[in-house]
Amino acid sequence: MAGDNGHEELRIGVYVCHCGSNIAGVIDPKAVAEYAMTLPGVVRATDTLYACADSGQNLIKQEIKEYKLNRVVVAACSVRMHELTFRAAVSEAGLNPFLMEMANIREQCTWAHGHDPEGALEKAKDLTASAVAKAAFLTPLQMMKVPVTKRAMVVGGGVAGISAALDLGAQGIETILVEKQPTIGGTMAQLNKTFPTMDCSI
């Protein structure tokens, strides 16, 4: 129904992370996995101690093949933390990286509701179901490749900017160092000697 071409059978795998005690200290990841198993399209759901560790990633990769998964849901931490990790993992198992969806049950669940384990469990189930629902409609996508202009700009000619510009220059990259004052040097140039070596600032 909701596959790449509208006809492929959905085979979603759900991996619920313990994150040591970060998640498992508040809720039971097994309960979330068992719940996920009842959702339409889910053919495999299990918990894992650390989804991001080699063991967790290997489990996902191996089961993509074993269960012929065509969508993966990882219920773990924030997408800002590990979305790229799990995209890479599913991709290594031959699945398009955009067929992976995360449910944030750590930062936005167990860490925020540490004193409300019941509410946290209910929320973790809903967030996982929401990720499963999105996964059902994911389509494979290709990263877009853009050309790169091999020049850099550094805005600010103080000690940090000068250091960046010199290093870029040394890498052979043409660098424009922009400074709004008439001279570079920034605050550093105004200083007498600098600690702890007491050398001249300029």
């Binding site: 220059g169 043409e174 660098t175 160092l177 400074e179 709004k180 008439p182």
Partner: peptide
Amino acid sequence: AARHPKVDIRTYT
């Protein structure tokens, strides 16, 4: 920085 052939300093900019 001023001497570096790859670094183009634009002050008052």
